[in-house]
Structures are given as C-alpha cells and as structure tokens.
Design a protein around this nucleic acid. Structure first.
Lengths: 205, 205
DNA sequence: GTCTATAGAGGGATAGAC
DNA sequence: GTCTATCCCTCTATAGAC
C-alpha cells in the first residue's frame, strides 16, 4: 500500500528468474504468515518451492532481502485493489471495508501475514520495524483525509474527530484479525467494521 | 484473567525455589515479549536471571512448561486489578478502560507480551493456541454480559448489539496496542477506547 | 540447586562444481 | 540457475558431577 522505490530487474531478459523470484515470494508469504519472520526458515521456503536452500539464496542475497521482497509484493497486491489516486471521500472508506472483506475471503494468508509480522515488528530491532512505522503513518494519514472529507460534507457524527476515527478504524481492523484467525467461522470482520462505523457516520455504507 | 487450575507447590518448604521460579517467569515475560515464544530462547532468559540454561531447566521441565507459567503469571496480574466477582455493569467497562491505561503506563511489557503472543498463537500448532482461544471466548462473554447490563439499564445506544460492542472493544484494545507499541508518544490507548465507547453509550465514562 | 559438557537438531550463509 | 558440501552458529534437552 505504501509507494516504494522498487528496483525492478528488466522482465524480458530474465523471464525464468522473475518467475522463480515470484514463486519464492509467494512461498515466503505463506511461511512467514504461519511462523513469523524470525522463526520462519528459508530452508522451509525453499522446500515449498522445490529447490535447495542455496538455490533460493541465488535469488535473494539473504533472509532480510527476502522479507523486503515479500513486503513489497504484499503492497503491490493491496494497491491493485484500492484506488490511491481517487479523491478522499466516503468511497475511500467503503473501499477499505471492501478490501477487508476481500482479504478475508480471497487471500486469508495475507491477513495472517499482516497480523503476525506487524506484531513481531513492533520490536525496534526487527528488520521490518521501520517499514511498519512508515506504513501505519501512511494509512493513518490516508484514512484521516477520508474522514476529513466526510466531515466537510457534513456526514460525520458530532464530536467525532477524523484522526481518531481513522486510528480507530485501523485498530479495529487489526484487532478483528486476531479474533478472526482464532475463530474464522464466528467472526465477520467486514460486518464488525460496519458496526463500528455506523454510529460515526450520518450516511449508510 | 482466566481462572486457571494452578498446581502450586507449597510455599513454606521451598521458599528459595519459589523465588527463583518467579524470577525466571519475570525474565521469561520480558524475553517472550520482545522476541515472541518461538524465537525467544531459554538461554537468554537464563542469562537475564543470571543462571545457566541447564539451571533454568531444573525449575521448568521444558520450554512449553515455562510458557504455561508465564501465561499463568500474566493472568494472576490482570486478575489482581479487575474484580471478577462484581456484577456486570457499566463499571465493568470502566474497569476495563482503567486496566488498559494501567497496563500502558505501569506494565508496558505486558502489552508487548500480549500483542506478540496472541498474534503468533493464531497458528493452530502454537503451544499457546488453545489458551488464547479460551481466553478470548472468556473475555468476550465477560464483556458481553457487561454491555447487556448496560442495555438493560437503558444506557446502550439504539441499534447496538452487546455482543458486537464487546467484540469491538476487544478488537479496539488489541489493535491500538500495535499502534501504541510502534509510536508510544503519539497514541493514547485509553483515550481512543473512550472515543470508541462514547457513541455507544448514553452515559459518560 | 546449579554447574559443565554434550548430544542432536536446525538455522543462515558461503564455496565451488556442473 | 541449481546443486552438494560445509562452516559455524544457536537452539533445546539430557547426563552427571558437585
């Protein structure tokens, strides 16, 4: 979701390599989602892909670089689904709710990955710490702008601050992920988010 | 917070051992809070306590048992602060908010521990998985009863379901922990929780 | 109760053959 | 691009001395 300065290699000349890289990143997402970054091993990722551990390290210099690749891929995925260039409005918030629903039903591994990595990356020494600090700041400002627009349109409930509504919506999303991962049949993340938003908005979602 | 069936050893006869166990559990809380259970090592915990790793394993048969002890200690801590026998009411919710504030300012390590462990324990194979499933179910029913009492007293906003309010409050608490751990100076967890509750309640907190 | 020593598994990274 | 082999590290757990 954060615009990153990706140093992409030319696609045409290294088609096979690009495909392998992609396979490795997909496997990395799965393994890190289940075991976290620190406990997830590149050996296991290599096994999923079907190559040796040394073979994997031909594509990524080390484990940290692989993590960076996984986070970048994750951002690409989210960006495909959300229109970042559209003006901030109630539709931004609607899009966010749709994204949550989409993630839960179509790419649950992404939810797992975010939940586990964001938690372990709260430690300042974690290689993804800075990434998550920047990412949360960015999403917060993105959503705050949306709630600000809603307020400007006279559709935000009295006494609600756009910044607090944005922070609350992010917290609600993250927190619901834990409960959903613990009990996927009972928890409906998108519905709970709508329940959160209803008292804050003067319009229906 | 969950009432557990603790098998305590008699205190008088093994005073020194009980003290050591306690030291180990405190150190374990810190190390698991920073590195998680899977990456946190009993070696490091032993180092913090100032004994050898084999010395530590005299007090806990293995790493899983140490984790169980840490979780039990954590529950004891929380239970000291919340009155579980009081009838469910708006005061239950007030107590919960106070607990959040207390944790953030007095025992930040506990917040870290919960955040990291609950995330990695979403994996069904994690040794604390069942613990967290039970714990969340318990807290949910506890808080739902409180919101139900609030509704019975005519103090819950129209259209709000007690169960959804309870689940939302838990999610909000968990999610705010991530943001707070990433940026402790900017985020005020208790205040944001109050912001969440304000539109749901007909009374002031 | 605590130690040293060690077994045995698994981790990341590198060297060098093909 | 991928492999095998290897180095060196860290980890949990156990055995046995004190």
């Amino acid at each position: 979701m954060i615009p990153t300065v990706a140093t992409r290699k030319p696609r045409g000349a290294y088609a096979k390599t690009a495909g392998r890289r992609r396979e490795i990143l997909e496997a990395g997402m799965d393994v890190f989602a289940t075991n976290g970054f620190r406990s997830g091993s590149i050996r296991e990722i290599a096994e999923v892909v079907g190559i040796s551990q040394a073979g994997l390290l031909h594509h990524f210099a080390n484990k940290n670089e692989l993590l960076a690749g996984v986070l970048e891929l994750r951002d690409d995925r989210a960006t495909e689904y959300v229109d970042l260039s559209a003006p901030a409005s109630i539709d931004t918030i609607r899009g966010f709710v749709r994204l949550i629903d989409y993630n839960a039903h179509q790419v649950p591994g992404l939810v797992e990955l975010h939940c586990v990595l964001s938690a372990e990356a709260t430690s300042p020494e974690h290689p993804a710490h800075e990434y998550f600090v920047r990412r949360y700041a960015w999403v917060l400002s993105f959503l705050t702008a949306a709630f600000q627009a809603v307020q400007d349109a006279g559709q935000l409930a009295a006494g609600v601050s756009p910044g607090s509504a944005a922070r609350g919506m992010i917290a609600m999303s993250d927190g619901l992920q834990v409960q959903w991962l613990l009990d996927r049949d009972t928890v409906d993340m998108a519905q709970e988010i709508r329940n959160y938003l209803r008292p804050l908005l003067a319009v229906e979602l």
